[in-house]
Nucleic acid binder design. Structure first.
Lengths: 353, 353
DNA sequence: GCCTAAATTGTGATCGGTCACAACCTAAAA
DNA sequence: TTTTAGGTTGTGACCGATCACAATTTAGGC
């Protein structure tokens, strides 16, 4: 006969109260750092808490008050699944997990991930369900959900604070992004400083605001360097390997071949390297390549990619912090810009003289 | 003046009950698929649920009943942090997230990640706090937490169901792993089939049971192939790049140099490739390399690594499923073995004649 | 020393589910 | 027809926090 052992009963707030000889409400005040508690009492209560190893039950806190101590992070399921299937890992999820968790942990919050297919029209319903079920104190939207206004509208209507990551220019929520324009300009400047003047650009999907910002940044860099842009140097792309390869092929086939290429993400940059190898173009001797994202793979390519890193982790931390601490303090539509980072590796070098 | 808009009030079980004209308890029965509800009533209630868009509040469910609909996944913070810092991504977290989430979602559960530093002696306390706070219905331990008996003891004492991943032979909890012995043997067989007879092995840290299992598997493979093992072919290692490089250096410096190497993880295999390049040993012409893990990076190395993949995602799914559905059905100490997968890539080839 | 305002502590209701149990209804057995 | 067992529905207590508010203590000003 197996005796189904029951769950161990843990100390409750009332237990602490009776040990400390105070009311349960006073214990609550100590837990929540309420200012109006005498030092003597606070110490007595704290001693009882330590003695019993008391930790407040988050479900009960949610029931009594109107906070859940939960932050919900919405990630794209399709993208994540896809990356995972290809065995490429998922930088976003990793870094979101980290950055978000750091901030949550420091404030007694938890982070819950929700993977929602962005292409699914029922995404709103999915989010609504998660909110009703968990009642999170804040929601973090990651690309491409950040661009989905339906979700934002739902959150506004529902009265749930939210932050968008990797998106800017929106008029509701808190928006955290890096300066894509400045980053693309920095990439261009970097190449220019190496002596390059014939610099091409492979763009990302137009649905992402970041894509156009990067294109503009590239143009600004070229303008400042007083370097004219040949028409075919601005190649379209959609963040996929294939589109990068096609763009590279077009650039290599052209008359006025660039000596450097700025790719809007790592994957397209990998494609450029691949295509360059096929055309016997040596990197970085004959061609420099620089890209956006700085995903884990960049250090394994041949040569390793010089890349600009989006501060995903820092953005997640900031998002969580804002949602936790500053609720209602930052006005809706606030824009927060975090710095990017350019890491030079083997794929860039001086311009062929 | 900013009017702090309050949180939208959502439908409750009582709301549904009054719309459907039944008691709240009947609604609860419908929600929980209780068998004793008349079809007519069930339909009426379901209609009311749909009409109001009702979703049960998970915190309230936890309060009333003794289930939280939460699964806690314990990952190593140090390892994760480190990986992330090196920009290498974190396969484990990615796949745990996925595999676990799939299973949770299908059963109305949520998964919460907890990052705990395994080297910190307060790990138990950390876990105890998380349990007291969240009261999860199950906990999943990942390496190296899987090997920490203190944690398991705590969970047993506490009456919380748990599953270990990547660990076997334990007498409590549910243990899910791949067959490391068989996998190592398969790797050896694979090389043997390519004509190799001089096969070396670089071991992992001895603290991991998997390490010894892999070593044994290698030996079994060699024995079956009737290939003698030169003493220095069994090299120690600790899963780090440095240890892999040192092991490779020793192997290359030796008289009876192997034509193939089985490395206990990808990182040490990368080190082998690195060291081989330094010694002008061509891979796979002069040396074949095969490794464990099959992390995202393997396809970016030169050449891409032939590797054995641990079914992390599947293990996480299984772990979550067992914790959710089978609670108390599987006896403590159950062992579940999931299949591995060997993917051949460029780092292995026929033995030099 | 007295009165008032502020600081500190305590009381009971409440959140939204589940649980235990009582009440009712139905159909098969006596 | 009556009994009985079982299926079906309803009732009120309860989980463990917080909230609103009442009660008490303390401190400041006269």
């Amino acid at each position: 006969m197996v005796t189904s052992e029951s769950r161990k009963k843990l100390a409750t707030m009332r237990d602490v109260a009776s040990v400390a000889g105070v009311s349960h409400q006073t214990v609550s005040r100590v837990i929540n750092n309420s200012p109006n508690v005498k030092l003597k009492v606070r110490e007595k209560v704290q001693a009882a808490i330590d003695e019993l190893g008391y930790v407040p039950n988050v479900a009960a806190r949610r029931m009594g008050g109107n906070r859940s101590y939960l932050i919900l992070a919405l990630n794209d399921r399709a993208r994540t699944l896809d990356n995972w299937r290809v065995g490429r890992g998922n930088d976003w999820v990793d870094q979101m997990l980290f950055g978000g968790m750091m901030a949550c942990e420091e404030n007694g919050f938890r982070m819950i991930f929700e993977l929602v297919n962005a292409e699914n029209p029922a995404a709103s319903k999915h989010l609504a369900g998660a909110i009703a079920s968990l009642r999170p104190d804040g929601v973090i939207l990651t690309p491409p959900h950040s661009e989905n206004q339906d979700l934002a509208d739902l959150l506004v209507a529902n009265g749930t604070a939210f932050a968008r990551i990797g998106s800017s220019g929106k008029e509701d929520g808190i928006n955290i992004a890096m300066d894509d324009h400045a980053a693309a300009k920095a990439a261009t400047d970097f190449l220019h400083d190496l002596g390059h003047r014939k610099i091409a650009f492979i763009a990302g999907s137009a649905e992402y605001l970041a894509s156009t910002a990067r294109l503009e940044g590239y143009r600004a860099g070229m303008a400042q360097a007083d370097a004219p842009i040949a028409p075919h140097w601005e190649q379209p792309g959609d963040f996929t390997f294939e589109s990068g390869a096609a763009a590279a092929a077009r650039l290599f086939a052209s008359e006025d071949r660039p000596s450097a290429i700025v790719a809007s993400n790592d994957e397209m940059a990998f494609a450029v390297l691949h295509e360059a190898a096929r055309h016997d173009i040596a990197v970085p001797k004959d061609l420099s390549v620089i890209s956006f994202d700085d995903t884990p793979g960049v250090r394994f390519s041949v040569p390793p990619l010089t890349a600009i890193r989006q501060p995903i982790s820092a953005m997640a931390t900031r998002a969580a912090e804002e949602l936790i601490k500053q609720q209602g303090i930052l006005p809706a539509g606030s824009q927060i810009v975090l710095p990017f980072e350019l890491t030079a590796r083997g794929s860039t070098g001086p311009a062929p003289e």
